[in-house]
Design a binder for these strands. Sequence first.
DNA 1: AAAAGTCCTTGATATAAATCAAACAATTAG
DNA 2: CTAATTGTTTGATTTATATCAAGGACTTTT
Lengths: 253, 253
Amino acid sequence: MLTLLFTTPKKMIDSNFKVACSSCNLRELCMPVGLEISDMKKLDEVVATRKQVKQGQLLFGNGDPFTSLYAIRTGFFKTCVSNEDGREQVTGFQMAGEIIGLDGIVTDHHSCNAVALEDAEVCIMPFANVEELSREFPVLQRHVHKIMSREIVRENGMMMMLGNMRAEERLAAFLLNLVQRLHARGFSQSEMILRMTREEIGSYLGLKLETISRTFSKLSEDGIIEVKQRYVKILSPEELRKIYNPQPCQTSV
Amino acid sequence: MLTLLFTTPKKMIDSNFKVACSSCNLRELCMPVGLEISDMKKLDEVVATRKQVKQGQLLFGNGDPFTSLYAIRTGFFKTCVSNEDGREQVTGFQMAGEIIGLDGIVTDHHSCNAVALEDAEVCIMPFANVEELSREFPVLQRHVHKIMSREIVRENGMMMMLGNMRAEERLAAFLLNLVQRLHARGFSQSEMILRMTREEIGSYLGLKLETISRTFSKLSEDGIIEVKQRYVKILSPEELRKIYNPQPCQTSV
DNA sequence: AAAAGTCCTTGATATAAATCAAACAATTAG
DNA sequence: CTAATTGTTTGATTTATATCAAGGACTTTT
């Protein structure tokens, strides 16, 4: 098969090649901004190696010992938790420049699965390095704290979605967030190819896949988006934002 | 009224009294364990002052500049986020020894409200102090990282609850979690007085107050708990755990 | 090119929880 | 001590989403 022919040779995967953050074009996403060149070079030590993860493979799984954070260089991941009786909850979708693995710090073991939704490459940042350099560089320390705080705030927002919002609002918020993050990475601000199935979107948003499908159809019929399988185009961002933030009904004084 | 007579004088509130973590009986909840006495004394510098917060008052609110983390000494808080159209989501309930304010780090402004559900006292830990001492004491640095990671993992669990679980399962999980945390603080492992209304529980669990009330009644009828307003006694922790973690149906091979 | 496997859509029906409503209990204010 | 307010319970009804079901559209395998 074609894919086999183009597979990276085994020895390349999980290689020991050094990656220089200082010359990485995702620098401003992963690393603190406003660093001196000299400091930046020293921070290159955060990253030990890179690792490739094929579509469908686990970067880390529930119960794995925690050793490192991972900065996504290319590709797309989902993280999910599952409980005793096998129910799964997707807790996030992550793309280039985002950091995963923070869940492992508290118990020294990961409590979720990180699965590549497309062939991906990550920078391995041994957490011991992160902590050591954080002590030396206050700007890195602050950066790490912000990344963790951002994740806490994001999850607060998810609780609001899951606890209070209707299916259409959740999907609108999801699409707006996704396209905004893609746009920040140089992609279109209106078009995208989804990397996940309806079922995965549903799991993330606390809905069933049929509801996702129906809600896509509804938004499409209303002329707000165009959907063709994984391809989504936002025709009216304002309408989508209105669905997400419905104005409170005007009541008479 | 009685409460007025016993109110702490105004000058005591938001006082500059130093609090020594090294001699605080909540030490093992807020602070890293296994510290040398000498290091512990230095860590006393983390806490600047204490502050009293009366029932119903805000410790901090959405939009407030972020300056400090707060360690709860006494009392009980809720944190909640709200959106443009006024819907509220309780994101957590916090008790003695727990840290609040982490949401403010990422933007230097808080993104939620922290409200005292009973008269409370907190230790103010200016975040600049926390970061400075973290650079000096790796054990404190690790501790701060764990606290943030724990919050991320807790919220992952909430996403599972809100996305996948039924009303009865959510309430069972809530009661088990609450009583377990109270027990860790020396209270009963079966009885408790709830500090929040049915509506607040509902907001936290993504349910309406009537559903909370009905679910309490159901658990009570089934002999699993005893409920009298805010008083709750867990009669059968095993049954409650079974509801939370229903065994997957045994299917034939 | 056909077959098999995923993934997606749409319709019919079921259901858990929301909503509406009213009475009741507990607490606070006058 | 009584009235007002706030919080809780319970019943009747509605509704948003889940579930069940079947066919269609891609994708991968053979």
